[in-house]
Design a protein around this nucleic acid. Structure first.
Lengths: 206, 206
DNA sequence: CCGTAAGTTACTTATTCGTAGGTTACCAAG
DNA sequence: CTTGGTAACCTACGAATAAGTAACTTACGG
């Protein structure tokens, strides 16, 4: 049994609250979750949350920040080496792995944040991610002689592809993500025009 | 002056409330909007909303239903004829036109609905749209000898592409959607592999 | 055994859904 | 013109939920 609800040192309680909060925010969205529910699930009373994070927004901000950082890191890593096509494949797989292994985090990032909506725009956090990915893409496109202004279009398109397929996958959970990644990469790389009947990955010398 | 706030017959008031509600839901999301704000913006008191729609959910449901129907119709129309590539182009353009001309409706559909979240899943309304589009795609894919199980993947990928680019575009509003549609279609059809430097549409004999 | 970090109860304040019951504008017939 | 009658509308409330805070209590290590 998960330790008889003893007292925890500050850092551990923080970590626990972040975990619990992520799970609850994932399920009910920002506006839909109450601080009290988070506290209850953590077997703790409300003021504890306020003590550690200053309130609902504070906790939410920390969770979002961590999650964004994590995904961005994984994707950056995935596209840091290899042939262009390999990078696409690795990035797809990396993102889908994230979706599979961190469903709560993914759900939080998929939802609309109160921060961006109060700041005028309505976009989800993942649009921000697309922006950063776009910054990585831009130089490569320019190098290849493409219009730089199109970079954000492609970045958003690619992130959107994988994101939408990701949320679909979380409901079905059926074809293993490796196979899903194959299809996505094939579509992104070859296009509908040259879609192979049975897509294969192309990772040279792992 | 928008008519000195006189009394309106039921059907007109209904229409007005739908319009106002859509705008407010678009800005603050479902949970974030109060019935009172909708009433206030419609220069009317709260019980009127309850009288016409039975409550917040009722109004929301009507708005969502109409919007879904509208988009689905436009997309279906776009992909009802032409060569495969033309269909992709027309669909992209149709969707982006919707985004441009009905930003509020698009925002509502982009957000997470309380209906789907109470029904277990977290997906946005646009995932449902992808499902329907997938049903249209499936036969064509099967015809061409592809694995039917991959149809939803492609459908979601395509909808995701255009959706994400759409939300990005609503913030920037810069390249006219015709140009954006060109890029998207090129990516979807040719893939990153064969991306043209300056994409062009390919609508034969309109 | 005592000081402090960790935690709790109980409250105030504010918002919002939803409704009960009364009021007023409009229209058509006398 | 004036008088109903009805559709449209409003004020005012009840109940519930949630954010955030004040002031008190208790476990635990040195």
């Amino acid at each position: 049994m998960a330790s008889k609800s003893r007292r925890l040192p500050a850092s551990e309680r923080r970590a626990q609250l972040i975990e619990v909060g992520r799970s609850v925010f994932a399920k009910h969205g920002y506006e839909g979750t109450s601080v009290e529910e988070i506290a209850k699930r953590a077997k703790v009373s409300k003021p504890i949350v306020y003590e550690h994070f200053g309130g609902k927004e504070g906790l939410y901000a920390v969770i979002v920040d961590r999650e964004m950082d994590y995904v961005e890191r994984r994707i950056s890593e995935a596209i840091s080496s290899g042939s262009p096509r390999e990078r696409v494949e690795r990035a797809s797989l990396a993102f889908l792995s994230y979706v599979r292994d961190h469903p709560d985090g993914f759900a939080v990032l998929s939802q609309d944040s109160p921060l961006s909506s109060s700041r005028g725009t309505i976009s989800s956090l993942l649009n921000d991610l697309a922006e950063r990915v776009g910054d990585v893409f831009a130089p490569a496109l320019k190098e290849a002689g493409y219009d730089t202004k199109a970079a954000p279009i492609y970045a958003n398109a690619l992130i959107g592809m994988v994101t939408f397929v990701g949320t679909w996958w979380t409901e079905e959970r059926k074809p293993p993500i490796e196979e899903v990644a194959k299809h996505i990469s094939a579509l992104a790389w070859m296009g509908l025009r040259h879609l192979p009947k049975r897509p294969t990955l192309q990772r040279s010398a792992d």
